[in-house]
Amino acid sequence: MRKLSDELLIESYFKATEMNLNRDFIELIENEIKRRSLGHIISV
């Protein structure tokens, strides 16, 4: 996760939620978004 750019991480989050991927996977992405202080972009 740390090698993904912020932009790609956010894009991955939206794609994963759109495709209804595994909730655990989405939570991993959400946690990384929060760690990077980007939660305001997706309202996490």
Score class of each variant (00 low, 15 high):
residue 1 M to D: 02
residue 1 M to R: 02
residue 1 M to L: 15
residue 1 M to Q: 02
residue 1 M to S: 02
residue 2 R to Q: 15
residue 2 R to M: 15
residue 2 R to S: 15
residue 2 R to K: 12
residue 2 R to N: 09
residue 2 R to G: 11
residue 2 R to C: 09
residue 2 R to V: 09
residue 3 K to F: 10
residue 3 K to H: 14
residue 3 K to A: 12
residue 3 K to E: 15
residue 3 K to Y: 08
residue 3 K to D: 15
residue 3 K to S: 14
residue 4 L to P: 01
residue 4 L to F: 09
residue 4 L to K: 03
residue 5 S to D: 05
residue 5 S to W: 03
residue 5 S to Q: 03
residue 5 S to E: 04
residue 5 S to M: 03
residue 5 S to N: 05
residue 6 D to I: 08
residue 6 D to C: 06
residue 6 D to M: 05
residue 6 D to V: 06
residue 6 D to A: 05
residue 6 D to P: 03
residue 6 D to G: 03
residue 7 E to T: 09
residue 7 E to D: 11
residue 7 E to Y: 11
residue 7 E to R: 12
residue 7 E to Q: 12
residue 7 E to W: 13
residue 8 L to R: 11
residue 8 L to F: 08
residue 8 L to V: 12
residue 8 L to P: 01
residue 9 L to F: 02
residue 9 L to T: 00
residue 9 L to H: 00
residue 9 L to P: 00
residue 9 L to K: 01
residue 9 L to E: 00
residue 10 I to D: 01
residue 10 I to K: 03
residue 10 I to C: 04
residue 10 I to Q: 02
residue 10 I to R: 03
residue 11 E to A: 15
residue 11 E to G: 06
residue 11 E to I: 13
residue 11 E to S: 09
residue 11 E to P: 01
residue 11 E to M: 15
residue 11 E to N: 08
residue 12 S to G: 06
residue 12 S to M: 15
residue 12 S to A: 15
residue 12 S to V: 15
residue 12 S to D: 03
residue 12 S to P: 00
residue 12 S to L: 15
residue 12 S to R: 07
residue 12 S to T: 15
residue 12 S to C: 14
residue 13 Y to D: 00
residue 13 Y to M: 02
residue 13 Y to N: 00
residue 13 Y to T: 00
residue 13 Y to P: 00
residue 13 Y to A: 01
residue 13 Y to L: 04
residue 13 Y to Q: 01
residue 14 F to Q: 06
residue 14 F to D: 03
residue 14 F to T: 06
residue 14 F to C: 07
residue 14 F to V: 08
residue 15 K to N: 09
residue 15 K to P: 00
residue 15 K to C: 13
residue 15 K to F: 13
residue 15 K to H: 13
residue 15 K to V: 09
residue 16 A to H: 05
residue 16 A to Q: 04
residue 16 A to F: 08
residue 16 A to M: 05
residue 16 A to I: 05
residue 16 A to L: 05
residue 17 T to S: 09
residue 17 T to W: 15
residue 17 T to I: 15
residue 17 T to M: 15
residue 17 T to A: 10
residue 17 T to G: 06
residue 17 T to F: 14
residue 17 T to R: 15
residue 17 T to N: 09
residue 17 T to H: 14
residue 18 E to N: 09
residue 18 E to P: 02
residue 18 E to W: 09
residue 18 E to G: 10
residue 18 E to V: 08
residue 18 E to L: 11
residue 19 M to I: 05
residue 19 M to D: 07
residue 19 M to N: 08
residue 19 M to T: 05
residue 20 N to F: 08
residue 20 N to M: 10
residue 20 N to G: 14
residue 20 N to T: 05
residue 20 N to V: 06
residue 21 L to F: 11
residue 21 L to R: 07
residue 21 L to E: 07
residue 21 L to W: 12
residue 21 L to K: 07
residue 21 L to G: 06
residue 21 L to D: 06
residue 21 L to N: 06
residue 22 N to S: 13
residue 22 N to R: 11
residue 22 N to P: 14
residue 23 R to E: 05
residue 23 R to G: 07
residue 23 R to D: 06
residue 23 R to P: 10
residue 23 R to V: 07
residue 24 D to A: 13
residue 24 D to S: 12
residue 24 D to V: 09
residue 24 D to M: 10
residue 24 D to N: 10
residue 24 D to G: 10
residue 24 D to H: 09
residue 24 D to F: 09
residue 25 F to R: 04
residue 25 F to E: 07
residue 25 F to T: 07
residue 25 F to S: 05
residue 25 F to D: 06
residue 26 I to V: 08
residue 26 I to N: 01
residue 26 I to K: 03
residue 26 I to T: 03
residue 26 I to R: 04
residue 27 E to I: 13
residue 27 E to D: 10
residue 27 E to A: 12
residue 27 E to Y: 09
residue 27 E to K: 12
residue 27 E to M: 14
residue 28 L to D: 05
residue 28 L to H: 05
residue 28 L to F: 05
residue 28 L to A: 12
residue 28 L to I: 11
residue 28 L to C: 05
residue 29 I to K: 00
residue 29 I to N: 00
residue 29 I to C: 04
residue 29 I to Q: 01
residue 29 I to D: 00
residue 29 I to W: 03
residue 29 I to G: 00
residue 30 E to H: 08
residue 30 E to D: 03
residue 30 E to F: 14
residue 30 E to A: 12
residue 30 E to K: 13
residue 31 N to W: 10
residue 31 N to I: 11
residue 31 N to Y: 12
residue 31 N to P: 01
residue 31 N to D: 09
residue 32 E to L: 02
residue 32 E to H: 02
residue 32 E to D: 01
residue 32 E to N: 01
residue 32 E to S: 01
residue 32 E to Y: 02
residue 33 I to K: 00
residue 33 I to D: 00
residue 33 I to W: 02
residue 33 I to S: 00
residue 33 I to N: 00
residue 33 I to T: 01
residue 33 I to M: 13
residue 34 K to P: 00
residue 34 K to G: 04
residue 34 K to R: 14
residue 34 K to Q: 09
residue 34 K to W: 13
residue 35 R to I: 05
residue 35 R to Q: 04
residue 35 R to N: 05
residue 35 R to T: 03
residue 35 R to A: 06
residue 35 R to D: 03
residue 35 R to P: 00
residue 35 R to V: 04
residue 35 R to H: 04
residue 35 R to M: 05
residue 36 R to Q: 00
residue 36 R to G: 00
residue 36 R to L: 02
residue 36 R to P: 00
residue 36 R to S: 00
residue 36 R to Y: 01
residue 37 S to G: 14
residue 37 S to I: 05
residue 38 L to F: 04
residue 38 L to P: 01
residue 38 L to C: 03
residue 38 L to H: 02
residue 38 L to Y: 03
residue 38 L to A: 02
residue 38 L to E: 01
residue 38 L to N: 01
residue 39 G to V: 09
residue 39 G to F: 15
residue 39 G to E: 11
residue 39 G to Q: 12
residue 39 G to T: 14
residue 39 G to Y: 15
residue 39 G to N: 10
residue 39 G to W: 15
residue 40 H to M: 07
residue 40 H to R: 06
residue 40 H to Y: 12
residue 40 H to D: 06
residue 40 H to G: 07
residue 40 H to E: 06
residue 40 H to Q: 06
residue 41 I to W: 11
residue 41 I to L: 15
residue 41 I to Y: 11
residue 41 I to P: 04
residue 41 I to R: 10
residue 41 I to E: 06
residue 41 I to S: 06
residue 41 I to N: 06
residue 41 I to M: 14
residue 41 I to K: 09
residue 42 I to E: 03
residue 42 I to W: 02
residue 42 I to T: 05
residue 42 I to P: 04
residue 42 I to Y: 02
residue 42 I to C: 05
residue 42 I to F: 03
residue 43 S to T: 14
residue 43 S to E: 13
residue 43 S to D: 12
residue 43 S to V: 12
residue 43 S to W: 06
residue 43 S to Y: 07
residue 43 S to C: 09
residue 43 S to A: 13
residue 44 V to G: 13
residue 44 V to P: 11
residue 44 V to L: 14
residue 44 V to C: 08
residue 44 V to H: 13
residue 44 V to M: 14
residue 44 V to N: 14
